[in-house]
Computed example of a mutant assay.
Amino acid sequence: MSLATAKPSAADPTQYATFYVGEQLLGVDIRMVQEINRQLDITPVPGASRHVRGVINLRGEVATVIDLRSVLGLPPGETTRDTRNLIVHSQGEAIGLLVDRISDILTIGADQVSPPPSNVDGVDGRFFRGVHTLEKDICVLLDVEQVLAD
């Protein structure tokens, strides 16, 4: 069996793209991430949900940009030179998650993930798959489908 066709088992570690929203370190399964970009020229969409910041043109494809701070119930943040769109794929669509700054790629084994608490820093735990403890921080693993379902 080639590596390309090998199916990951539950014991295989997973890589997570990590980023900050406020002071909270979050991670998403890297297999969901299409790209990270700086495009912040976002066109507002009248009548859209309050969580939708707008849309961007991603090389001819329209991608909806979700304000992750808004979804998580955090106060609005300033757009800075570190602000990025984390482009993920969900149900065949490219979705931009607006994040405050990008961090690292973490490789985490299933045995290194604790169940998510009912909330983290006041954020509803239903948005989280689990928590991974680092030396000086915790990384909360985001359930992208739940975030987008809200």
Rank of each mutant, 00 (worst) to 15 (best):
H51F: 11
R53I: 01
M32F: 04
L86E: 02
D143S: 11
I36T: 14
L142Y: 03
D82H: 13
R81L: 11
S70C: 11
R38L: 10
P76H: 04
R38C: 08
V62Q: 02
G122D: 10
L86R: 02
E23W: 02
I102S: 09
A94C: 10
R101G: 04
E93Q: 14
D67H: 05
Q34N: 15
F127T: 07
L106E: 15
S114G: 06
A110H: 13
S118N: 12
T18I: 02
V21G: 01
N37R: 13
N119H: 13
R31P: 03
D41W: 06
T18V: 03
Q112K: 13
V131S: 05
V144I: 10
L141C: 06
S103I: 03
T64R: 06
V21D: 02
S90N: 12
T5P: 02
I138N: 07
E35P: 01
E23K: 10
L106M: 12
E93C: 04
P115K: 10
I105F: 12
Q39T: 15
S114L: 15
G47K: 09
S103M: 00
G125T: 06
V55F: 02
D111F: 13
D29K: 11
A10Y: 13
S49I: 09
M1D: 11
S90A: 10
D111K: 12
H132F: 08
A63S: 15
K7F: 12
V71Q: 00
I138C: 08
K7D: 05
L98P: 00
L3F: 15
P116A: 14
R69P: 05
G130V: 06
